[in-house]
Amino acid sequence: MARLMLIAVTLIGLLPLTLKAQTDEDGIMMNKNLLCAGPSYGYSSWDHYWEGTFKRNNQNIGTVTTQMVGVMGTYGITKKLNIVASVPYIWTRASAGTLHGQHGVQDLSAWVKWLPVQMQLGKGTFSVYTLAGGSLPLTNYIADYLPLSLGLHSRTASGRIILDYQLGHFFTTGSATYTLRSDITIDRDAYYTTSLHATNRVDMPNFWSFNFRTGYRANNLVLEAVASNMTTQGGFDIRRNDMPFPSNKMNATMVGAHFKYELRNPKGLSITGGGSYTVAGRNVGQSKSFDIGFFYILNFSKKPKK
């Protein structure tokens, strides 16, 4: 009965995106038998959100904060075939009102990244990457508790194509991803979307996401501007003063910047970081987020016998 009008966080796009941004959306591959892995931290918060197309705040939740600590690794099976995997632990919190925050392990996500085309084009190099991936909830966290749930608890499968062009130290990368989502089971056995459903199963909308990045890329330094968009195929709007729901239409457009710096000493250690801001959305929070990560490259090659 009701008092808290709650809001959707861009759970699908938000922190997992910053976590995975470094390697499953870029035009970089690990060499054979190299593992690049390490921890990262992400922080995201918002105090305004879009209830359908109506932008508002809500003093009964104040600022919603999501923090994430994750581990992520990329392994080179060959120079042209990599595996990327990550697991985050997430904390959510509302600064006002009474709603109880959540914390726990969210979803394992994994990608197979393949470089089928790499060619000279003009004075630069043109590459095409194709990726197939998926995600799987690792715990029985609650999905129907937006905006403070850890995620949407759907299994997903995604296909992605990345086009990358590098000219000297200047590069530009664009990608498009389609993500299929499985139904989810919620704790209630009836719920209202645009009509009443007498079931605990929820049909989840699939979504498109697009990512565009451009900037400077050299051996030990990447500086890039990033724009991304997520557009849900289907789903419904949060009604005025209603609670959000996992199968809402959740669209967001974000802009930001990112860097990656590889230290000379110790060799193999790199630092990544960046931030982004949601400039437009629908049924999502207008989040500001930043992340930082540390990655170390390990070589699993057998030493050549002399």
Partner: peptide, 21 residues
């Protein structure tokens, strides 16, 4: 690996998307 990746796609897409009352 490609086979596995394809398997993930098929498994997820085969999930019943029709929820009935």
């Amino acid at each position: 690996i490609l086979f596995w990746a394809l398997g993930v796609m098929v498994a997820a897409s085969a999930c019943d998307k029709r929820v009935s009352d």
